[in-house]
Write a protein that binds this DNA or RNA. Sequence first.
DNA 1: ATGGCGGCACAATGCCGA
Length: 255
Amino acid sequence: MKTIATWNVNSLKVRLPQVLQWLRENPVDILALQETKLINDKFPLSEIKEAGYHAAFNGQKTYNGVAILSRYPVVDITIKNPYYEDPQHRIISATVDGIRIICIYVPNGQSLDSEKYTYKLEWLDSLYKWVKDECKLYPKLILLGDYNIALEDRDVYNPTAWIGKNLVSPLERAALTQLQGLKLTDSFRMFEQKEKLFSWWDYRRMGFTLNKGMRIDYILLSPLLAAKCISCTIDRIPRSWKQPSDHAPVLATLD
DNA sequence: ATGGCGGCACAATGCCGA
């Protein structure tokens, strides 16, 4: 039995106490983090170790930054997609107890007429090329993180208002569908779920209080692991804490 | 309709997120 989680923490410096508390209450085996917003020199390794976790991290100043925490040693760490030269640190992958973990923080895109949207699509296209190779190398593979894409209308609180906009536009959704075409399964949709379960809520407009959210964080599983997956949930509780991240953790359990 | 909150930085406002 093994539990894997992903959480965009929106600054690990600010959220470290919450991450440690959450890990005490949810002692997952692997936790992928996004938006650490820390250079590697400032990664809180001693606190993480004290909590019983190994760590690999790929940070930068101010923006982005990703990490993998694990109860098992983290080996064969890479931080680059060979198909894309990217100054923004959005990827870390490693092998943990025989499972290849790829933690991603997909670019936001801002809006469809933005250069950042072009960057997002290029980034996703090159991600596909790379993950296609990785799937061949690693039959046990997990691609998880903040995708910044709401795949279906049921992943959006108000799909009508969002038609064609950034996060839901057809090209973004096609990019995520293409990844799933590598036989990577959205673990959340393997199971019957209640309606309007989201993983992100805007800080503004009382987003969380009104449950105006989106599901944009995913744990995708290769066939060997999907066959072992027995649950996938979103833990809304940390989003209700004081000074929360705007994202909630997503957890998948493998038998 | 707009911007609203929150984190960050060459620290006051501007950039960015989603």
